[in-house]
Simulated assay, not measured.
Amino acid sequence: RPAPGAAGLGPALPLRLTGVKICGGIALGRAVLHQPSVAIKRVVAEDPEAELKRLREAVAGLHDALDTMMASSDLAASGEHRDVLEAYRMFAEDRGWLGRIREAIRSGLTAEAAVQKVQNDTRVRMNQVEDDYLRERLSDLEDLNNRLMQHLAGGGAAAPALELPEDAVLVAHNMGPAELLDYDRRRLRAVVLEEGSPTAHVSIVARALDIPLVGRVKDVFSRVDPLDPIVVDGDTATVMLRPAEEAKQTYAHAISQKAERRASYAKLKDLPCVSRDGVAVALNINAGLLIDLAQLDDGNAEGVGLYRTEIPFMVRAAFPDVAAQEQLYRQVLDRAGDRPVTFRTLHV
């Protein structure tokens, strides 16, 4: 798509796109394009030992940065998002990944070129995998490679908070969970991805932070310009680029109405759940993540009508063992208190 006003064409027109609902909610803001990249200035290494030393220092910096990120106040609590970050941290210590980078350095490449070579090789292998869940881990690995490249280049986080507008909406092909956390959550309103799925690690972190996210929005990255006005309706999986003023007012009104409805629901939550003809109705929530259990208090629900136990198998680097599952279910029961919980068991 030509840039707005290019070749006398005038401003780009409004555009409505659809995708897949991942995290609900409505947001109105300006587009910020997520496109991490680090230029490789040298490919051939003159001193492989010096490059190996640079790699060690960069890996140490990467680990320290991830530890600092995981210690932040809104991510330190237990939950599936914490499991995601723990798994991501494990990827960063993978001996096979680091060993392949060292081998490439010893073959004569600089540290940056070695990381890029391993990244390209991994991308080729992962794209041949038929399992959708395993292919989704590619975005995590791409994120790690890009992050390591930034440390090799002498940088840290890829997204300084000062570069974000107050109402930022991230638009990306795809991204890993740590990439999302690079951005200032106080300014971040929503995320739009060309790829993505409900079980992707970035989706689970976005849900933990209550950030609307729409995935699988075809060609959105090539159709939006930086700071374009954008509306994200996570409830209907709709994205509007450069909406007309009337449409922006409509969505702004919808956001205001939603806040008012939440306030009115809060006033009703302590009333008995009874039909007009006096029949009591049990109100339970449907959950699959620990963060969903906040709805027990938000809606004053009587319990958890269904807790989907397959989700922990999807968010970890390896299947949770008996002890890990027991710990998770104990947390669910502790959080529910005296309220009943129905677990849907999973046979592996």
Rank of each mutant, 00 (worst) to 15 (best):
A45H: 03
A157F: 07
L306V: 09
H63L: 10
I311D: 11
L33G: 09
V115C: 08
A323G: 11
S264P: 00
E326S: 14
L164A: 02
P272V: 04
G337P: 00
A294C: 02
V279P: 00
T18H: 15
A294P: 00
A287Y: 02
F91P: 06
V279I: 09
G288L: 06
G96T: 13
L180S: 01
R135Y: 06
G196S: 03
L268C: 01
G154W: 08
G234M: 00
A153Q: 04
L15A: 09
V129T: 13
F343H: 02
E51H: 05
A92W: 00
P2Q: 08
P229G: 08
L209N: 07
S107P: 03
F343M: 00
Y329I: 03
A7R: 14
S256F: 05
D233V: 01
G5H: 02
G19Y: 00
D143V: 05
N286R: 12
I26F: 01
L75V: 12
V192A: 11
L152A: 06
V279G: 05
L13C: 00
S73N: 07
Q327V: 05
A153C: 02
D140H: 07
A77G: 14
I204M: 07
R125C: 09
N286F: 14
R123D: 15
K218M: 06
E49D: 15
E326N: 12
D225R: 10
P11D: 15
E246Y: 01
Q35K: 09
M126W: 13
L62Y: 14
P36L: 09
C273Y: 07
L346T: 13
A157C: 12
V220W: 08
V224S: 04
C23Q: 12
G108K: 03
A77M: 06
V304R: 02
Q128T: 07
F313V: 06
A200T: 15
A114G: 06
S275T: 15
V217E: 05
A206W: 04
V232S: 12
L162A: 15
R16M: 11
G234A: 00
R308L: 15
Y88S: 12
D184I: 09
Q150T: 15
G299D: 11
A50P: 05
P36K: 08
V304D: 04
